[in-house]
Design a protein around this nucleic acid. Structure first.
Length: 290
DNA sequence: CTGTGTTCCTGTTCGC
DNA sequence: TGCGAACAGGAACACA
């Protein structure tokens, strides 16, 4: 499911069950997801206590009691669910929807189990020493947190200065801003009244300061992400929170997956269009997004 | 260095 | 109803 709001929703769902408990068993059911699991994955995790669960960009970070960090990325289709007790390995369980894509099961000292499911297997897990995290290739080039204190129009201007790439591509670039994905980029650009095709550098003045559009864009990015986190993320298809509940931000989409619908902006009268930019769908209103 | 296209994988939806 | 094509929340990688 995972853009920043969905990953944050997962973090909030997992933390109460996971933090403070020990991993008494780790059931790794295949050698790889997008990448191979790290060497001795099961042995390195079994017996460890989880001291904290945080998020950086679209990564979940479980701090372990041996100064290592279990890094988890959900890819396109990854999800976690919590089960209160070990289900019997019987016919009914095995026939359960999607059980074929349950790739990892963490048994906790509380008796609960946390199961990672990922049909497309674009997700991955890694174990990294905490001290090496920020220098690690996965994180060395990760961009600004859009909900962080430093994120504003001036920061956007610094990131976008001189960029000819379209706003859509620049906002999806995780080395610039970390956590936005296709949905929330589309939504933020509509709220800001900016075309996804517009050059990112056009939001920067010659002296490097932000235009009013840059200030507005930074503001609506923060807004749309905060609203989505508040709503428990977006549930497309059958994606669910860790407790099985559906997020409901998808009902708040103004443009994403709404090709042909009237533009929701008051008095605009335009129609939502779909175009493809660098292989991904962009939904926007050609009338009010310039 | 910058920007764009391809690729990994499975499941769902849509048009015929 | 069946069947192939298009498409899906990400991002590493190859290449111009």
């Amino acid at each position: 499911m995972p853009e920043l709001p969905e990953v944050e929703t997962v973090r909030r769902g997992l933390a109460p069950a996971l933090v403070g408990t020990r991993l008494v068993s780790v059931d790794q059911r295949r050698p790889d997801l997008r990448f191979p699991f790290p060497e001795n994955f099961v042995q390195r995790l079994t017996g460890r206590r989880v001291d904290a669960l945080s998020r950086r960009a679209k990564y979940l970070l479980a701090d372990l009691d041996d100064a290592q960090v279990l890094v988890m990325h959900l890819g396109m289709s990854g999800s976690f669910r919590i089960e209160d007790e070990t289900p019997p390995g019987n016919f009914h369980y095995l026939k359960a929807k999607n059980a074929a894509h349950d790739h990892v099961a963490f048994g906790l000292s509380t008796g609960k189990r946390i199961i990672y499911n990922d049909p497309r297997r674009f997700g991955f897990m890694q174990i990294i020493a905490r001290a090496e995290l920020s220098a690690h290739p996965l994180f060395r080039n990760v961009g600004l947190e859009p909900l962080g204190n430093e994120f504003d129009g001036a920061a956007l201007a610094r990131l976008f200065a001189g960029k000819a790439a379209p706003l859509k591509a620049a906002l999806l670039d995780q080395t610039l801003i970390a956590g936005l994905g296709n949905i929330y980029v589309c939504e933020a650009l509509h709220r800001a009244g900016l075309s996804p095709r517009r050059a990112a550098g056009s939001l920067v003045r010659k002296n490097g300061s932000p235009t009013d559009h840059a200030d507005l864009l930074a503001k609506v990015i923060r807004e749309v992400l905060e609203e989505a986190v508040e709503a428990g993320g977006s549930s497309l298809r059958d994606h669910r929170q860790t407790n099985g509940a559906l997020g409901y931000f998808q009902h708040c989409f103004r443009v994403y997956d709404r090709e042909g619908a009237p533009c929701p902006r008051e008095g605009c009268g335009g129609v939502i269009k779909r175009i493809v930019q660098s292989g991904r769908s962009s939904f926007f209103c050609g009338t009010c997004q310039k």
